[in-house]
Design a protein around this nucleic acid. Sequence first.
DNA 1: CTTGCCGGGAC
DNA 2: GTCCCGGCAAG
Length: 372
Amino acid sequence: ERPQLRAGGPDPSALRAEAPWLGVQGSGPRAAPVTVPAPPQGPSMGGSFAGLEFALPQEPQAADLGTPGTWAGAAGLPTPSVHIPVPAQRSPPGKARLDEVMAAAALTSLSTSPLYLGAPAVVFSPEPGLEPWREALVQPTGSYSSSSNSGDWGWDLASDQSSPSTPSPPLPPETAHFLFGEPTPRKRKSSVQVVFQCLWKSCGKVLHTASAIQRHIRLVHLGRRAEPEHSDGEEDFYYTELDIGVDKLTDGLSSLTPASPEAPVPPAFPRLDLPSLLRPLALPLPPVLSSAAPLQTCHSDHTHQGCLAPVRVDAQPTEGRATMPALPSKLGANLRKPRGDAKKCRKVYGMDHRDLWCTACRWKKACQRFLD
DNA sequence: CTTGCCGGGAC
DNA sequence: GTCCCGGCAAG
């Protein structure tokens, strides 16, 4: 028994429905954020992007994460090899080894976030978040100036967005910071703290342990008993893990700690101050992804979407009541499947031979004969 | 404009 | 359950 879909609230069913589909669609550097090397497909990077070097986070740039400024420094090095996460060419669909990618993602999450032990399902739940990462990766360098993201998708507790003087092209430090998807590498364990934020609409509660947040969700949002044994794991869909620097934590979370359990107001998410950088993205990114665990990225495509379902909210980016920033106002439409390019019964047989159509076509449903 | 099909209604 | 269609989004 699932709770009814609350308007504007997280929708686990949508997530579940989308997950397999995402898996099918998954191609290219899907889990590249951490372990998957640049996909071999597509034009060679060496040609058009000579001089640039992949900065895929094989080994997370420990020193950079959490301190975006470092990136500016890296970019300023005299060497032509700039640490810019040169996006891989979009690879043909279906070529990626999904199992590899998934395995990599799973391993990464396990190795980087011991706290997952307390929330096993989280490994799955953030699945839809892969996209921004991928989206960024597939952006050709040449077009990066108009490319994705400012790194401000998340709340400012997790990342320092204050680098107004930093030029954005070709790659703002924030972007690099974000792109690596692992802002809290193991090497900096000591200065990083993990918190768990409730994604429930208008909640945003932040707790320090997975069990606590699960309990919170069970009790407050799912209306269930607090005991974990009564859980079916659904609460995992409603929170996200955030890695934040201790200093930031102290600054930003002072009013969000469990000491103020009644506070319905979520952390003050930063507004998107670089909207132009977001333009190419089909979807704004779930804010919770900014600096969270590696898997906390969104996976979608220019022609596909749906990844936002689990964090769907109706909040407006600039409104105080917003639990999350900059989500599209009409996400419902994003759940619609993109039109396939296959000819359908209607087109093949024409209106004249409607009797030849498959039943679904006759009923104006998704064609079952000519699948995409 | 046409096409695909979601959402929902009628039965 | 089957069957149909209004209406929407994409092209």
